[in-house]
Design a protein around this nucleic acid. Structure first.
Length: 617
DNA sequence: AGGAACTAG
DNA sequence: CCACCTAGTTCCT
């Protein structure tokens, strides 16, 4: 059928993962890494002797994650420490409350994987997942193929250096496939020399290479999903973990009675498992399908009894169409067009793009939660703590070391407070400061507590003294608290008492570039990247690849009531999740055009789209 | 702009 | 929203 011109994306996540997806004209790759296992892997990478031992990462009184050796002994996440010790007395338990090392490891792996990208389309999702759009790499390598000898192909990793790459068998898939029976299909058998199948094969080999490199050079295993969109690559990557990879096999389209693999695969998922369909949307969908209030997870650690409404249930429900979904799900708080987006998602259609690498977080925020915080003194103490962490984080994430001349300690280093003001430069200037709190609602007369997750906040221009490199962090902290945060707090809580806060958050946002456009590597940077690629890759292959060691922050705080993620550390804001941003997906690479409305979409979506018109009229 | 709601890991 | 924390987007005003 009409030639869709998929390209390739590849996504990687560590401790488990890389995902890839093929899309109309694009080929994304993605995988779903265990968040949990990532923490354990970080410790294992630091100390490989741990790999053969049952290892559990502790936060507060529970195990937030454990390695597979521990799982073999019956341990699992969210398990009480006491229970784990009883089950496995020789379990090695490490504290994972300080998130600094995880953040640093995440960055390092991200930077490593980024070296493989030609277009800089690489997007982090959380600490342990990455999407890569490898469309360009796949397309290039498809053109290099010798159709008469697919078995002895060479995958080229650089456009500048034809020797940089690896041999592979393009006729066969690397790793697992969905459906599993398609894993052994070769290009020769499937007489539809469909480009999609071929591209997916290449994607699978690239993913395998990436995983091997990641393991060899960084000591992390990863799991990958390979498909044509972020949606499909992420979901399909879940099938074989850890340390595996799965490709969603063609055909994706549904035709004449046979269901395409995209729909077949996604249909069995519980509706809330679909990225982009969060708790609220899922509940509303379940209630509509079930025609009654849907039971809610019981909040027990052990799973929860959720109603099992699948994508198929929603997709095939007679009343479900984009307009109806818009009515059901739209309204205040929901993005416009949510109906169409959800409708596309349940039909396995996802036009969202893999975002470009971002060098600067768009926001930095620090928060802590409290069992009780109701005096001005405590507030002041907490504001100081948060402000100090925030300033340190700004230094870590926004300050560039400009060491043209290696190790020339400037004579200006008389004050030890004064952090080598040598050659450091802000790469971004946040413009606004925000203070948020979550007041604990007062008790009602009947003793119940009103709901309120609500955070309230005040924003103000960020005072520019905060960018001073000559003042000490402590001095800056003091000024920030007294000149900015305290006045904001008074606006937020004019009463001098009577409140009780369960959370305080301080954030800087509105990043403005310091000089040139350093936020995103955009068009012009790309040519640079092409230029450097060959050398970079050589380094990679020589094992000479370590990124500059990130500065470690050592401040730690305590005293929060949190469970999974103890307050303490801040995290970077590089991650982005945009499953539903739609626009710009069509650059003009093919697929089918609807004759009714002119919409462009991948071929496998057309059937569903036609049904949309039928129902719509 | 600032604030709230939703989503995500 | 089971809780938790940091961050992103989007809508409303």
């Amino acid at each position: 059928m009409g030639k869709s011109r998929e390209t390739a994306h590849l996504v990687a996540s560590y401790s488990a993962a890389v995902r890839q997806a093929l899309k109309d004209k694009r080929f994304v790759s993605a995988y779903e890494a265990d968040y949990d296992c990532f923490y354990a892997s970080v410790f294992e990478a630091e100390n490989p002797a741990l790999k053969s031992l049952p290892l559990a990462v502790q936060q507060k009184h529970i195990i937030v994650t454990c390695n597979y050796e521990a799982r073999r002994r019956g341990l699992h996440k969210l398990q009480l420490i006491s229970e784990a010790k009883k089950l496995c007395p020789d379990v090695v338990i490490v504290l994972g409350e300080d998130l600094t090392r995880f953040r640093n490891a995440s960055r390092q792996l991200y930077n490593f994987i980024r070296q493989f990208s030609w277009n800089n389309k690489i997007e982090r999702l959380g600490f342990d997942e990455v999407f890569l759009d490898v469309t360009d790499i796949i397309r290039y390598n498809v053109e290099l193929l010798n159709a008469n000898d697919l078995t002895n192909s060479f995958f080229c990793l650089s456009q500048n250096d034809p020797t940089l790459g690896f041999p592979y068998n393009a006729a066969e898939l690397a790793g697992h496939a969905y459906p599993a029976s398609t894993a052994c299909r070769t290009i020769a058998d499937s007489n539809e020399l469909d480009n999609l199948l071929l591209r997916l094969h290449l994607g699978s080999h690239l993913a395998q290479h990436l995983r091997a490199q990641l393991e060899e050079h960084k000591g992390y295993t990863a799991t990958v999903g390979i498909s044509t969109s972020k949606l499909l690559s992420k979901l399909v990557g879940n099938l074989n973990k850890p340390n595996g990879q799965t490709t969603l096999s063609p055909p994706y389209e549904t035709s004449e009675g046979t269901t395409g693999n995209a729909t077949a695969f996604i249909d069995g998922h519980e509706i809330g498992k679909i990225p982009g369909i969060g708790f609220k949307l899922a509940q509303r969908l379940r209630e509509h399908i079930l025609q009654r209030a849907a039971a809610i997870g019981s909040g027990l650690v052990y799973g929860g009894t959720k109603e099992n409404v699948t994508v198929r249930d929603v997709r095939t429900h007679p009343t479900v169409n984009p307009e109806m979904l818009e009515r059901l799900l739209g309204g205040p708080g929901s993005p416009h067009g949510i109906g169409v987006k959800v409708w596309q998602l349940i039909h396995a259609v996802d036009h969202s793009k893999v975002g470009q690498a971002r060098e600067v977080p768009s926001q930095i925020s620090i928060e802590d939660s409290y069992i009780r915080l109701d005096t001005m003194e405590e507030v002041l103490r907490e504001l100081r703590m948060l402000a100090k962490s925030l300033i340190k984080r700004m230094h870590l994430d926004l300050l560039e070391e400009n060491d043209d001349d290696a190790g020339t300690p400037p004579a200006a280093e008389h004050s030890k407070e004064c952090v080598s003001l040598g050659r450091r430069r802000w790469i971004a200037h946040p413009k606004t400061l925000r203070l948020s709190t979550r007041p604990r609602p007062p008790l009602n007369s009947d003793g119940t507590r009103a709901r309120s997750f609500n955070r309230i906040s005040r924003s103000a221009p960020l005072p520019s003294f905060i960018f001073s490199l000559s003042e000490s962090v402590d001095a800056l902290t003091e000024r920030l608290v007294s000149e900015a945060l305290l006045p904001m707090f008074r606006k937020l809580h004019p009463e001098r008492s009577g409140w009780d806060l369960s959370l305080v958050n301080v954030a800087v946002t509105n990043m403005a570039d310091a000089a040139g456009d350093s936020k995103t590597a955009t068009g012009r940077d790309i040519s640079n990247m092409f230029r450097n690629q060959a050398e970079v890759l050589k380094d990679v292959l020589n094992g000479d690849t370590d990124m500059p060691a990130p500065i470690r922050s050592t401040d730690g705080r305590k005293g929060s009531e949190d469970l999974l993620v103890p307050s303490q550390e801040s995290r970077t804001g590089l991650e982005r999740g945009e499953w539903d941003s739609d626009d710009g997906a069509e650059e003009q690479v093919s697929v089918l055009t609807c004759e009714v409305c002119g919409a462009i979409m991948p071929a496998f979506a057309m059937l569903a789209h036609q049904r949309f018109h039928e129902l719509g009229d």
